[in-house]
Design a protein around this nucleic acid. Structure first.
Length: 973
RNA sequence: GCGCUUGUGGCGAAAUUGGUAGACGCGCCAGACUUAGGAUCUGGUGGCCCCGGCCGUGUAGGUUCGAGUCCUAUCAGGCGCACCA
């Protein structure tokens, strides 16, 4: 047994276990450890949070972005969104909804594979270990997840449906006329009957052939043509190749020319890759934003990313040649100011239009551009370019315009060729100045001597220039820019010079990754063309490999798999050695990217064990789509675009009944770390407290935040922390060592990671939940600061003490509540209900603190007040609410209780306070019977004893009566 | 450059949406109980002050009896897009 000093010291700790062991405290003190352990077990055993399709109740679907189970485990930032959504889910259930609140794991990904490469441990094993650790941590926090619906993206029964969806995309094209995906067989039928005549479909490049031509094509040629239209297609495209990671990356996985994961350089490379025709859905992705309840900033980010731009495509012919080419512009009105044309270096036109005497220069330029990485291009934006030797003909004026090549024009956008109007485009302006090309201003009053005038405003002039003649007398002079754009579009369309065209910045998603730990493609290659393995043979399981690195020949890691070939005759995977390209064929070696598995998981949660379909029509019809989705805003241009695309495709297929997957989106902010520092005097082992550090030459050193409390360092713990500090000496202030602090990313290397397990051990999960919500608005990023947590713990203990006396007696009585009790309760009901609906959880917690304080002061013991209080707390602090609920004599879970109704009559006051003000100042206040009329308020204001000082010469101009609140009488001279 | 967003005590933050700015919590100060306190409880806590008040929501104007809130301009931070024609 411990010595006296130590055992009584244990009592100062506020853990339940310590108080239990010590006679200074009673056994009925708020003992969260026992309470939480008990209910954790009971909920699991009784499947309290299991949910089915209950058609007698309205449904509500709450979803968190599922986590990637990293090796580091959860820190206190991870559960923030889960707690917020759990509160909402529990609240909705108490309001009578049938609530789906599932959880799972986004289990495929790079870190597990990197770890496998380094250690040889199979990613499947590390992933399962990590998942188990996550599950342990999540379970402690008291979420109302239905774990029977858990999904893991790396499970074959899950990725079955990822592969299935991919195959459906392969078998589909997008019809622009009906704005919908259609089976590819319809396209084949159309080709056979009409060729490309009358076709308006999404494609990689516009093809033109007759039915007769189609019908004489070989099978392989037909397949190559179809690849141009499929929603999942094999495309030769410029990709972001990351040599360090050995894989291609999607645009949203690259920032500033570096990979998001790892920060490795990324170069452009032409490769054959699987792609998803996301661009076909650009308009629907844009339109859908108007129908969903997301924050403006996320919607705007997506609008930017989609980048719709309405403009005109115009045909330009080439001088002394029968060649012509198309450009895209949003400023068709500036056609009279075109002084040169520019082609992207990658454009195929470059080769065709370059004259013999310019060829050497142009080729050198194109080569030089190719060698520059995207990063170099961004870093160094010098104006460069070269003349092709050719001239285009301005269709409106017949003038010759030199054609240049420059890397400021992008091959991937529009047609890869532009008409340059230096007077009204800053990039063209810089180019014109650099190469001394003419600049013709077209807007009255625009001064283009120093810079271009880019704004789309003003009155048009010089269109055409004086003394010149536009085509068929066409002139824009005197029009506003907006009118001029419209007039030019009309004219261009009528004369057949071009067409109105909408362009999107959104590119197709590259869907191949040269990695091991991802979904394999259900694809094999026959005669050089990809074939889908039969649907009945799905899932195609990820094979074992001898090592996780690429093969010596540069093939993806699946090239190391021995058993990785497709036996077409027997519809099975067989050994690679058997490949004969007659009945046994090679399988695809790349795997799918991270967003594949996360694109439709919300549908799978509706029906997670269905082995016949991704989701049954019944389950889909019942759950519809996600009502509330919570997750970080960093997925704005990745997951949140891809899953909307994926869902729209499944909607076209009739699999998902809703066009949009996530009705309401709430972005939780990130929780940053709050690092602590100690200051070592240079060349010594002496540490000086924060307030005195400026008197010395010191080095700040990160110190583990777990041995610091309220910025005061635990000296003994510090000495024990690391061997080199064992002999540390300290210069203290006021007998204490005060640490410095800074807000940084929460990470191991900063020693500022706070593990939720530690908080739960010390304070309990209810306190953790409450505190995370109390920290501030959920959408805001904020640093974690363990200091305030005591306040939340004290609140829970005070609450407990409403139900139990100090000596452990049950304190709840059947006494009727007082008027004050009811007012406190209903004020709380109103506030908490409103706050939950608006996700203002931090102010709800404050409201609870006030209410409990008031009830304690009122010495309230009434069951009629304390029972509703218990229900109100259930979403926030489920453990203690459940315990008290049972102590109140219920034998069903508090989750099945009914949310208390707000009764306004409890709020009516006997008197209200009337404040009388003039000149913007409250001069005096008087009490007034509640429900007094305006006239009575006015009379009382002027008749009050204090009034004489103020009211002389003043008149009442306004009387403000707010029920139960301040009444204000405003006076004016 | 364009778009979104945020500026309030020592700190995290509230403010009934135009009506007593700083609720609630942390921290700090004082007191109580204590051998002791990183425990618990009670009270205080925006600044200045001649103790009557005065000044206070990034800055400067405006509307109003009244502005943190609405309008105009401006400054600062955060995020997104960015040679997209």
């Amino acid at each position: 047994m411990t010595k006296h000093g130590q055992s009584s010291k244990a009592a100062v700790h506020i853990t339940g276990a310590d108080t239990l062991k010590n006679n200074n405290y009673t056994i009925m003190d708020y003992n969260f450890q026992d309470i939480e352990k008990k209910w954790r077990q009971t909920w699991a055993a009784e499947k309290t949070y299991h949910v089915g399709e209950d058609t007698t109740k309205p449904k509500y679907y709450v979803l968190n972005m599922f986590p990637y189970p990293s090796g580091a485990g959860l820190h206190v930032g991870h559960p923030l969104g889960y707690i917020a959504s759990d509160i909402y889910a529990r609240y909705k259930r108490l309001c009578g909804y049938n609530v789906l609140n599932p959880m799972g794991y986004d289990a495929y990904g790079l870190p597990a594979e990197q770890y496998a490469i380094q250690t040889g441990q199979h990613p499947a094993i590390t992933t399962v270990n990590n998942i188990n650790r996550y599950r342990d941590q999540l379970d402690k926090i008291g979420f109302s997840f239905d774990w029977d619906r858990e999904v893991r993206t790396c499970d074959a029964e899950y990725y079955h449906w990822t592969q299935w969806a991919f195959q459906r995309m392969f078998d589909a094209f997008y019809c622009n006329t009906c704005q919908k995906a259609q089976p590819i067989s319809r396209l084949v039928a159309h080709f056979a009957a009409h060729g490309t005549e009358g076709l308006d479909v999404a494609c990689s490049e516009t093809l033109s052939f007759t039915a007769a031509e189609w019908n004489t094509m070989s099978e392989k040629e037909q397949q190559q043509v179809l690849m141009n239209y499929r929603l999942a297609y094999l495309g030769e495209t410029m990709v972001n190749w990351c040599p360090a990671l050995g894989t291609v990356l999607a645009n949203d996985e690259v920032v500033d020319g570096l990979s998001v994961r790892g920060g490795h350089p990324v170069v452009q490379k032409k490769m054959k890759q699987w792609c998803l025709r996301v661009s076909a859905y650009a308009q629907r992705l844009l339109d859908g934003l108007d129908t969903i309840d997301w924050s403006d900033s996320i919607k705007e980010t997506q609008r930017n990313w989609i980048g719709r731009s309405e403009g005109t495509e115009m045909e330009f012919s080439v001088k002394d040649s029968d060649q012509h080419f198309t450009i895209f512009t949003t400023r068709a009105d500036t056609i009279f100011g075109v002084t040169f044309m520019v082609l992207a270096p990658e454009s195929e036109l470059v080769g065709e239009l370059t004259t013999a005497d310019c060829r050497a220069d142009v080729e050198a330029y194109v080569e030089a551009t190719k060698r520059r990485t995207e990063r170099e291009r961004i870093a160094d934006r010098k104006v460069t370019g070269v003349f092709t030797g050719s001239y285009a003909v301005n269709p409106f004026t017949g003038e010759d315009i030199p054609i240049w090549v420059s890397d400021y024009v992008l091959a991937g956008y529009g047609t890869g060729a532009i008409m340059a109007v230096p007077a009204h485009d800053s990039r063209d302006y810089a180019f014109a100045r650099h190469f001394s090309l003419p600049i013709i201003p077209l807007i009255e009053g625009a001064d283009v001597s120093e810079e271009s005038f880019d704004a789309k405003e003003g009155t048009v002039m010089n269109s055409p220039q004086q003394g010149k003649q536009g085509l068929d007398g066409f002139s824009l002079n005197g029009l506003t820019v907006k009118e001029a754009i419209a007039a030019t579009k009309r004219f261009v369309t009528e004369k057949g010079l071009g067409r109105v065209k909408v362009n999107y910045r959104l590119r197709d998603a590259i869907f191949s990754r040269q990695r091991y730990w991802g979904e394999p493609f259900p694809v094999y290659y026959k005669d050089g063309m990809p074939r889908m393995i039969p649907e009945a043979c799905l899932p195609l399981c990820l094979p074992e490999v001898s090592k996780f690195l690429p093969t010596e020949t540069g093939e993806p890691p699946l090239g190391n798999a021995a058993k990785w070939a497709w036996d077409e005759a027997n519809s099975q995977v067989v050994d690679k050695a058997l490949i004969d390209n007659v009945t046994v064929f090679p399988l695809e070696l790349s795997t799918m990217p991270g967003f594949a598995g996360s694109s439709a998981y919300y549908l799978r949660y509706m029906d997670p064990h269905n082995d016949k379909a991704l989701v049954s029509p019944e389950a889909d019809a019942y759950w519809q789509n996600v009502d509330l989705y919570i997750g970080g805003s960093e997925h704005a241009t990745g997951h949140l675009i891809y899953s909307r695309f994926w869902n729209k495709f499944l909607h076209d297929l009739g699999v998902s009944c809703q066009d949009e997957p996530f009705r309401k989106l709430v972005n939780q902010g990130m929780i940053q770390g709050r690092s602590n520092f100690v200051y070592r005097i240079k060349e010594t082992n002496t540490f000086v407290s924060l307030g005195l550090k400026d008197q010395y030459d010191v080095t700040p050193i990160h110190v583990d935040v777990n041995i610091v409390q309220n910025d005061v360092l635990d000296l003994e713990a510090f000495k024990a922390w690391r061997p080199e500090f064992a002999t540390a000496e300290f210069i203290l202030e006021d007998g204490r060592y005060i640490c410095g602090w800074a807000v940084e990313k929460m990470s191991k290397s900063m020693y500022n990671v706070v593990n939720p397990d530690v908080i739960i051990e010390k304070y309990g999960a209810d306190t953790l939940r409450l505190y995370e919500m109390f920290l501030g608005p959920i959408s805001q990023s904020k640093p974690w600061d363990s200091n305030g947590i005591d306040g939340c713990f004290r609140f829970l203990r005070k609450t407990w003490n409403l139900f139990f006396t100090r000596d452990g007696q049950w304190a709840v009585s059947d006494e009727a509540p007082t008027k004050a009790n009811l007012k406190t309760l209903h004020k709380l009901i109103k506030k908490v209900t409103e706050d939950i609906e608006t996700f203002s959880y931090n102010t709800s917690v404050a409201a609870f603190m006030i209410a409990v304080g008031e009830l304690a002061q009122q010495k309230c013991t009434s069951r009629q007040v304390l029972e509703p209080l218990c229900i109100l707390m259930a979403p926030f602090t489920p453990y203690v609410a459940e315990e008290l609920w049972h102590q109140l004599g219920h034998d069903t879970t508090v989750c099945d209780a009914q949310w208390p109704a707000y009764d306004e009559t409890c709020m009516v006051e006997d008197t209200v306070t009337l404040s009388v003000s003039f000149n913007g100042k409250t001069r005096y206040t008087i009490d007034l019977p509640a429900g007094a009329s305006r006239e009575e308020a006015e009379a009382a204001a002027l008749g009050a004893p204090q009034a004489a000082r103020y009211t002389e010469g003043f008149q009442v101009v306004k009387v403000i009566v707010v029920p139960g609140k301040i009444v204000n009488v405003v006076l004016k001279k």
